[in-house]
Design a protein around this nucleic acid. Sequence first.
RNA 1: GCGCCCGUAGCUCAGUGGAUAGAGUAGCGCCCUCCGAAGGCGAAGACCGCGGGUUCGAGUCCCGCCGGGCGCGCCA
Length: 575
Amino acid sequence: MVDFKDIIAEKIYDDALGLSKDEIKDMIEIPADEKMGDYAFPCFRLAKSLRKAPQLIAADIAAKAGDSEAFAKVENVNAYVNFFINRAYFAGEVVDEVNKLGSGYGRSDYGQGRKVIVEYSSPNIAKPFHIGHIRSTVIGNALYKLYDAVGYDVTRINHLGDYGTQFGKMIVAYRKWGSEEELAKEPIKALLGYYTRFHEEAKEHPELEDEARETFVRLEAGEPAELELWEKFRTLSLEEFNRVYDMLGITFDSYAGESFYSDKMPRFIQELKDKGLLEESQGAQIVDLEPYGLGAAMITKSDGSSLYVTRDIAAAVYRKEHYDFYKCIYVVASQQNLHFKQWKKVLQLMGYEWEKDCVHVPFGLVSLSDGDDIKMMSTREGRVVFLEDVLNTAVAKTAEIMREKDVQGVDIDEVSREVGIGAVIFQELSNNKIKDYVFSWDKVLNFDGETGPYVQYTHARASSVLRKAEAAGVDVNNLGEIDAGYLGSDSAYTLAKLIYRVPEVVVEAAEKYEPSIVTRHLVDIAQSFNKFYHDEHILVDDEAERNAKLALVKASKTVIANCLGLLGIAAPERM
RNA sequence: GCGCCCGUAGCUCAGUGGAUAGAGUAGCGCCCUCCGAAGGCGAAGACCGCGGGUUCGAGUCCCGCCGGGCGCGCCA
């Protein structure tokens, strides 16, 4: 499809300006107000080098650029050169392109098949999947889809928290107070019970902590008795997690978690020693990062067992050697910013220059309102909202609404899942990921305004119009040559422009690791479509007009479905 | 104490150094004999936390405060 910025750069380019075409492209803006045109080139900056008033520069450029097939009007206002796209030409191009590419619209080969790893979700085994886990899971999944869409070869890794002292605690607690029957019935609940009880009892009997650490040392040493229990906990937990992943429609290519790297660490501890980076401190082995203002990174504890950073170093090198990634993305909470800085610094000091290709994508904290104050979620203290409960409640509410509305011709069971779960995912991907938020039932269960159901509703509405046209004998898959002159109204044109920008929006979202950019754009498209739908009658008698408008409806539906897909949300035909 | 992050309308949030700071939501007023009202339209609502600075131009960049969050070796 035509790139209007290219055309503008071509027109504006002049040796005398002292700017390359790419520099000109970068300067081009999209005016806040449509009345100011579709693209604008500000001339303020040129005033100094050309020693001429910016208004005069703009006037000269506008006169030189003139009108053309692509631009109906070029004018200068307040030192901006404003370009007005030729509406009919434009809408025709956009609609044809979308309807030609279908589900491929929005995808590109920008990534040239390079290898990208996305690590996300990564829950701790034996702890319930709560609403705090939704962020990494859903953001990571969207990033996977975005990178896949822009042409990268993506591998999804669920770096399970399946190792560490916590398993020493779990094993100790299970042996003291647990039973096989209890565990078989409700694994996570039972394990959580042991874990919570451990912490309660440890307050009175601190020696339990030592016992737990010793148990983990035995586990790490491969003692069969500990290993067997650990494997049991892991398998049972994974089964429960998979239930949630199934609901969310999320899969992984690898579940290689922390335990996977347990036998790969000695090599790096030795390497750190050989490179003179390791030093002893109070019985533990650390890398001193004080010179970089990053404190100390602990590599082994005084009892010799491993730590988080150690495992992450092993994991990074393993991935580099095994996948030879171009980029490795870690979707992990911002609470771990320091950890990632330390870890990257250690890798750098070890001489792994590809450390710069490892990107920590942080996100803000989800907390709970507890009466008057707001608190972090705590599994230990039982202050949690389970993700599965949130999803089920959203689905139930959707089903209730559908029954009230008496929607015909749909499987309520299936569609209420698509809409209810879509609402939760959409909500999660609506805001800038770095922001903290307080979980609110009212908010996740609100289906009005800028929400998933609103966008899905818009899609269903577009689908409905197309069905109606088909019922009247129109072949919506073959509308023939479109007379885009019927798509020149403000609402049709605004909609076409938003659709046109989708491919660049997808690339931007991937580059910035920010799915909400797509979510926001999707809301804009839905609003714009609904306005168009209300402003104009689509199924008119005149065939040329009707077909042109139907082509725009079809393009809108396709684009909405594609973007929802990038976020991991379904696009039902009816709801 | 030190480090990182956040602060925009009552609430939840957009806002690539550029034109008159935008949505949604709540409250108020309209619109279903017309393609799906989970919708559309209108009015109202903002010392962009405060104070300096850089710039032709700052919500956006820099410095200092204030408020909130998170993190700071034997958890992950």
